[in-house]
Computed example of a mutant assay.
Amino acid sequence: MTRFGVVLIAEEASGDAWAARCRRAEALGYDVIAVPDHLNLLAPFPTALLAAEATERATIGTYVLNASFHHRTLLAREVTTTAALIGDRLELGLGAGYVASEFAAAGLPFDPAVRAARLEELVDGLEEGLGGRRPPLLIGGHGDRVLRLAARRADIVSFTGAPYRPEYGRTALVTADELLRRVEYVRTAAGERRPELNVLSKSTVLTRDRRAGVESLRRYAPDLTAEELLEVPTLFAGTPSQIAEQVRRNEERFGFSYVTVTDSAMEDFGKVIEHLR
Rank of each mutant, 00 (worst) to 15 (best):
R218P: 15
R208I: 02
V199Q: 08
A154H: 13
G255Y: 04
R170L: 13
T175I: 03
V199N: 11
I156M: 11
A244R: 11
R210D: 01
F256I: 04
R153W: 11
V261E: 04
P233I: 00
T175Y: 03
R253V: 00
F159L: 05
T204L: 04
R208N: 07
S158P: 14
P222F: 03
A150V: 10
L173Y: 14
L224H: 08
L229W: 07
A162S: 15
L173M: 13
R165F: 04
V261D: 02
P222K: 03
Q242A: 15
Y164I: 02
V232K: 00
P195E: 01
M266C: 13
T188M: 02
P166E: 09
S257I: 06
T160G: 15
T171C: 14
L230A: 10
F254Y: 02
E178W: 05
V247M: 09
I243N: 06
N250Q: 13
S201R: 08
P240A: 10
P233M: 02
P222V: 05
V174K: 09
S201Q: 06
D209Y: 06
L180Y: 01
S201H: 03
S158Q: 15
R211F: 09
R165G: 06
A151M: 01
Y168Q: 05
R170I: 10
S216G: 15
E228Y: 00
E228A: 07
R182P: 00
G169E: 05
P233T: 00
A176P: 01
A221E: 02
G213W: 08
V259Q: 06
S241P: 08
G169H: 05
E252H: 14
A244I: 06
R193M: 08
D223R: 11
V199D: 09
R248F: 01
S203D: 14
S257T: 07
A226P: 14
R165K: 11
A212T: 15
V157E: 01
L235I: 12
E251W: 04
Y168G: 09
G238W: 10
R253W: 00
R182W: 00
S257A: 11
D155A: 01
S264R: 14
S201C: 13
A151I: 00
T260M: 12
T225Y: 06
G191T: 03
E184G: 02
